[in-house]
Amino acid sequence: MIAVLGNNGSGKSTFLNVMAGLLEFTGGYSIDGMPFKKMAQAESARRIGFLPQEAALNMPFDAFYVVLTGRFIHSDGRMYSGGDIACTEEVMKRFDVFHLRDRLFNALSGGEKQRVLLARVMNMDTDIFLLDEPFSGVDILHQIKIVDIFRRIRKEKIIIVVIHDLSFAIQHFSRFLLFREGRLLYDMKKDGLSAGRLSEVFGVRVGFAEQDERMFVYTEEM
């Protein structure tokens, strides 16, 4: 579980977009020894599940079908199989959105939409998940539930998440990518984090507090 941290416009989303192959880039990277640039789109979609910051839907689909479309790469391209439908039901139950299945997606509230879309991406069942602010608009109860699901699958999957809540990130994530002004400034484990480094990244003075082996982050007045 990797958290991507940084201010607005620091290049977090661009980084995710590049990783997902949605933007042109120089250089290269490999997945399982296979250069990403050589992958066809279908292949990369099979490897990487991507949740963009803003998603829009242009057709009155119900929530179930929205989640089902995540199975596209696993389908034959013409029809979703019974297995796809079973997976969809399962993932919707896991993300606590199964009761919304017959509602029109566009009629859902912002947080519900976000959870449905998250379920949709997880339904892609890829090795890598790139999630751009998956928690925005989601209530605390469901944030905890979602992180819990992430924690259970972290052995098999790489989950890269853009997040703004520092305390939440430090509490649940193990590796951190810190971006500032379009550059990756630090790539470190939890123990590498310090008040000084975080202050450098965010441009505000950040303080740490520790209680019962839990870390809390607070900002000092400017």
Partner: peptide
Amino acid sequence: CFDDTTASSTG
């Protein structure tokens, strides 16, 4: 019918 980013990342 989704936005282009979602559509292309879905494959």
